[in-house]
Design a protein around this nucleic acid. Sequence first.
DNA 1: AGACTTATTGGCACAACATGCCAGAAAGGC
DNA 2: GCCTTTCTGGCATGTTGTGCCAATAAGTCT
Lengths: 208, 208
Amino acid sequence: MTGRPTLTQRRRDATRLDIARTAAALFARQGAEATTAEEIALAAGISLRTFYRYFSVKEDAVAPLLAAGGRRWVELLAESSADLPLREALERSAVESLTPADDAAVEAMHWTRSLLRDPRLDGTWQRVHSGSEERLRTVLAERCPDGTDPLEIRLGAAAATAAIRVALEQWAASDAAATGPGSPQDLGARCMRELTAGLRLWGRVGGE
Amino acid sequence: MTGRPTLTQRRRDATRLDIARTAAALFARQGAEATTAEEIALAAGISLRTFYRYFSVKEDAVAPLLAAGGRRWVELLAESSADLPLREALERSAVESLTPADDAAVEAMHWTRSLLRDPRLDGTWQRVHSGSEERLRTVLAERCPDGTDPLEIRLGAAAATAAIRVALEQWAASDAAATGPGSPQDLGARCMRELTAGLRLWGRVGGE
DNA sequence: AGACTTATTGGCACAACATGCCAGAAAGGC
DNA sequence: GCCTTTCTGGCATGTTGTGCCAATAAGTCT
């Protein structure tokens, strides 16, 4: 569907990712606060000015890594069969996107855990999910029949995005491995299933 | 439950709110980007240094106004009868917190609409909800029987917070009044009901 | 290949941001 | 009254993020 990106664009994306890796290593070692933008630029072999052409905020330098999973999720959903019930499609694509496929995905997930422990990167984390939510909204809108209440779509996108975020935050705070029980795909599956089935929490607590 | 704040603390809160109002007026008029921290400080009658003692980031100066509704929500929930099913308690407190009660609430809601249109304040908006989500999580945990899966509680708090956020964002983007159809409490009620009933969206779309 | 157009880069200057530090003012407790 | 604690303002400072311009590289066309 989306045309092949121009060569220039692909080179740009590669540079972007280079910087992201460099920044992630520095942030993980000494924290985002103690790392200056100049330091990142120097380590990445570019000038400070160029750094700010790729990222408007220092902390956002790691966004490409944090956003990789979410992007994959929405892609998978967009490609999934339209015959599948939405709840099925959402859960499957979520689990798949949380299952590290190639080396790049493993790497992104590894960085995610370190970076999520840096409070200074909270803003970037939120921004990443905000973007993810918006893309998800678009894909949901395409999949739903025309005339579906936009509020419902927004709400669905927001809730689903929140579920993935919670799963990842829970994983990052734990010491669970990247696969098996307690792993992102495990927690993600539980969150998505719980969410699409209607949270048990709502009815289980309180009288009557 | 929460002890009375000391006099000093209450004076501090008042100053905080003063600054917030001043900042909101400036942000609404000229945008957050075009407003310097020094300008806010001057207009609020304090020094730049003192401003940064109240808010560590310029944009956060309006956070007390944006956060007022969410705080009220969690308060109401905490006070609500434990006999009420959680879904009922959540919806009622949400609707009530979105219904402007006193002048201060009307004012906060008014500012919220203007401020939400400033992209520069997105970060603050997210941070406010992040805090709200955390407080909600605490209250939910108290209400749930011991041993309730923490993941479920996190997920519930995240989803509910997202619902309120979506309702307010939808309202702010519209030209609906603060009461009646399309108002925050109307949208909020719809979002919370939809969420706690299990989103229709999940099942309605796709084959089978 | 060569000429032309477009995009990227780096250096410089600069306003604004945000924090550490210290000394003076004010509030609260005895 | 005094003393302790907290709040305040001014100053200095490193960092952030952007506008501007000239040099370079990449992409396109005949």
